[in-house]
Simulated scan of single mutants.
Amino acid sequence: MSMITENDVRYQIQAEMRAAFPVVEGRLSRFYAMQEYHLGWRNEDLTPTTADPGKLIRPQLVLLACAAAGGDPQQALPLAAGVQLLHDFSLIHDDIEDDSAMRRGRRTLWHIWGLAHGINAGDAMFVIAHLAIHRLSDRGLPAERVLTILRRFDEIILRICEGQYLDLSFEGDLSISPADYLTMIGGKTAALIAGAAELGARAAGATEETVTALADFGRAVGLAFQIEDDILGIWGAPEQTGKPFAADLYRRKVSLPVVHALSHSPDRERLAELYRQPVLGDDAVRQVLAILDAAGSRSFCAVIANEHHQAAFAALDRLYPPTATAAAARDRLRALAQSLIGRQY
């Protein structure tokens, strides 16, 4: 079967996500409708709608990696759905842990229905993500391969939880180093992106060399993606990011540019003093920006992001696609990584 086209891939991913949800009687329908609200399928009054589902980068990586490894991406659709549902589950709990009231321009699930419902809805989506992956058997994948994928899926989730633990532990800690920060995002952000590419290759029944190359590609893309996000969180244009200018500074977020300046700026003590204030006003943010600019923190982050992009391209160069379709998928993976370099949103 030919590779899924860009025109219908997003629709097919979301259709497979919907298929993973159980059919329930009326008393439970609201429970699943709250989860569908989080996914952008319903309004706050739980009537159907279509809202922005995000970039869907992770499930697209699953399908492209499967194709690049010589597999049929149609067979990997349940895996793509499971990976996206896992990501969305993590966002439900992230919003709770970060005390976030808004996501993608809409109120967060827990902010509408309360903390208890938010935790419970997230737990259910975690299980539905697994149920989606079990549907790989219905697509003809051997049971042993499905079991391997499920085991790796859980190991990847544990890495994400470890990264989240480090992120929570680092809150308010102005002594962390750039290496500490990169270790944290290696779990919190890069683990699932690496896992998406790895699991896509495993769904194809690829050799361990191919699996490792695609996992390395995903890990490098994930690290670069988060670092680019850190740059945009401070210097991104509001009309493109949809966020206020320097939003991460107003939130006193200790992202990589700030970590770099705290380690390298001669004004690190002043920066730490500003970040210890309970609220950063406009003047304080201007001072922080001046310190970051003088320390070259934006350039440092751009260089590190580019290094990871180059590592991603090098990982793809280790692939030897068995067919023209697989080669085309590899080229699309390269184009995806290229599109993230210097992105504006």
Results as ranks from 00 to 15, higher is better:
317 D>I: 01
268 R>Y: 03
89 F>M: 06
323 T>A: 03
141 L>E: 09
58 R>F: 02
227 I>T: 00
285 V>M: 04
334 R>E: 04
218 G>D: 00
48 P>Q: 06
207 T>D: 10
43 N>F: 08
306 N>E: 15
66 C>N: 12
184 M>V: 10
267 D>N: 07
210 T>A: 13
66 C>L: 03
238 P>I: 06
240 Q>A: 11
7 N>R: 15
345 Y>Q: 09
99 D>H: 15
266 P>D: 12
304 I>G: 03
336 L>M: 13
13 I>F: 07
51 A>E: 14
178 P>W: 01
323 T>S: 15
37 Y>N: 04
279 V>E: 14
228 E>Q: 15
97 E>W: 06
183 T>C: 08
249 L>K: 01
326 A>D: 05
344 Q>F: 06
248 D>Q: 09
88 D>R: 10
88 D>N: 15
43 N>W: 03
299 S>K: 10
125 M>K: 01
302 A>W: 03
231 I>D: 00
227 I>A: 00
58 R>E: 06
107 R>W: 06
255 S>I: 08
75 Q>C: 13
299 S>N: 09
228 E>V: 15
287 Q>A: 11
336 L>K: 08
270 R>V: 06
321 P>Q: 05
144 E>M: 08
308 H>T: 00
234 I>M: 09
45 D>K: 13
77 L>Q: 02
158 L>W: 14
9 V>Q: 01
43 N>V: 02
147 L>F: 11
154 D>W: 04
133 I>C: 07
137 S>T: 14
54 G>C: 11
98 D>F: 15
11 Y>T: 15
130 H>M: 09
105 G>V: 04
82 G>R: 04
338 Q>S: 11
9 V>F: 04
148 T>L: 13
19 A>L: 12
282 D>W: 00
304 I>V: 15
115 L>T: 07
273 E>H: 04
190 A>R: 01
328 A>F: 04
234 I>V: 14
87 H>T: 11
112 I>S: 02
192 L>I: 14
293 D>R: 10
318 R>A: 12
335 A>H: 09
93 H>A: 07
221 V>L: 15
229 D>C: 07
253 K>D: 12
221 V>E: 01
252 R>Y: 05
9 V>N: 02
210 T>Q: 07
341 I>C: 10
120 N>H: 12
113 W>P: 01
158 L>P: 02
5 T>I: 10
138 D>M: 11
323 T>K: 08
52 D>M: 11
7 N>L: 15
110 W>Y: 08
201 A>E: 01
160 I>K: 04
303 V>Q: 14
123 D>L: 10
337 A>N: 11
211 V>R: 14
152 R>P: 00
230 D>Q: 12
320 Y>P: 03
320 Y>F: 14
